[in-house]
Amino acid sequence: MNSAAMYPPSTAPPANMFNSVPGYEGTVAGGGGYLPPPMPMEPVAPPQPGPAPESWTIPSLEEDVAREAFKSFASSHCCYNKAPAKDGVITKMEPFNTYRYRLETFTESRWVTHLSCEIRVPYTSSIKDCHTCHASGTMPCEECNGNGHKPCWVCNGAGTKNGENCTTCNGTGKDNCRVCDGHATKPCTTCNGKRQLLTFIQLKVEWTNHVDDHLVQQDSGLNVDDLRSVSGKELFKNNNYLIYPLLGFPSAAIGEASDRLIKEHQSKFAQNSRILQQRQRVELIPITKVNYKWKSDTHVYFVYGNEHQVSADNYPATCCCVVQ
């Protein structure tokens, strides 16, 4: 008789294994369960900015500062001749300051896993019968299909060879399974033969800071992507667990961006994460368009941000460098 028939097939952990743990009802054993966040809080209305005071304006960039920024820009490019930055004559400087609204939402996401030997959630441990071996502690040996023996490799199970009893199997035609040592079973690999399992909930926590920017369009001609890496003069900032859209700002585009981005973050993150904190800021980013002459031709470059970064897409004196 095949002893494998004595063992019922193994099963997965019961889906409702942790239904008795408060706060983890419906968690699926085996991992991947999502732990829903608590009810969302009401957003808190921040102090709203009034009319733009004179202190919000950024002083015009001085010509010497613009020239030094241009020289540093040219020196940082090995293929740029330094002459245009050094000898070019500045003819006009135009300010094109712009607003940037930035929303940050700091979230916590949680997942649960089970039957792990890592850090566990306190007070969720319990002892369960092993679902693989049904608390028997053993499973049929796969090598011999639970028989404890295999056909003799010398006589192929015939018991005789060349008309005589096989000396290897003493005429039985059987050879003890070397994997299970003839016992037909092996210790269960899930519970290591202990028949029971220590089960608990393991929690994975992930913190993420989601950041979105909105830059008010400006007519300087500078690529808006260049502005993402620089800072400006901070005009307004507030943070709370949940924030309220910005109202009454002198630029209507900033108020619209605040309302839109806050709604987007709520829609994206509140369903699958717990929002721990939000922050909104408004900056005034300085942009100066510099017109200059070099060798009787007129050219343009931009100086922008508190860092005085430079953009000059059509630098008039470049060469091709080949590194071998």
Rank of each mutant, 00 (worst) to 15 (best):
N306D: 10
D297K: 15
S116I: 04
G182A: 08
N192W: 08
C191Y: 00
K161C: 06
Q202G: 14
G148E: 03
M1T: 12
K150D: 00
G148Q: 02
E143G: 09
V322R: 09
P122V: 03
T57A: 15
N239Q: 12
E234Q: 13
Y301A: 10
V290A: 09
E94Y: 04
Q271F: 09
Q271D: 11
D225W: 05
V28G: 07
M39G: 12
V290K: 04
G163A: 06
H114E: 08
S136N: 03
I58M: 03
V282Q: 03
L103F: 01
N192K: 14
T189P: 07
L284V: 04
A66W: 00
Q309C: 11
T190G: 07
Y34V: 14
I285S: 04
R260N: 11
F18Q: 06
L246T: 01
G146C: 05
A15M: 11
P286M: 06
E118R: 13
V121C: 13
N240F: 06
L203I: 09
K128L: 13
E42S: 14
Y101V: 04
N147E: 09
R102C: 11
D313R: 13
Q48N: 09
W56Y: 03
G157L: 04
C177K: 02
F73E: 06
E118L: 14
K295H: 09
G171K: 01
N192L: 13
V28Y: 02
I201G: 06
E63N: 08
E256M: 12
L197A: 03
L203G: 05
Q280K: 10
R281V: 13
V89T: 10
S220R: 02
Q266W: 07
I254N: 04
K82I: 12
L276P: 10
A158I: 04
A253C: 10
K128Q: 14
I275Y: 00
P122F: 03
T318V: 14
P36T: 03
A257N: 01
V44A: 14
C133L: 06
P40M: 02
A52C: 08
M1E: 09
S136R: 07
L103H: 02
A317K: 06
G232D: 01
S126E: 10
V89Y: 01
I285N: 02
Y292G: 06
L284P: 02
P36I: 02
H308N: 14
R67C: 06
L35Q: 03
A158M: 10
L246W: 00
C117A: 15
P9T: 03
R100E: 02
N19F: 05
F269Q: 03
C319H: 10
I90M: 08
R120C: 13
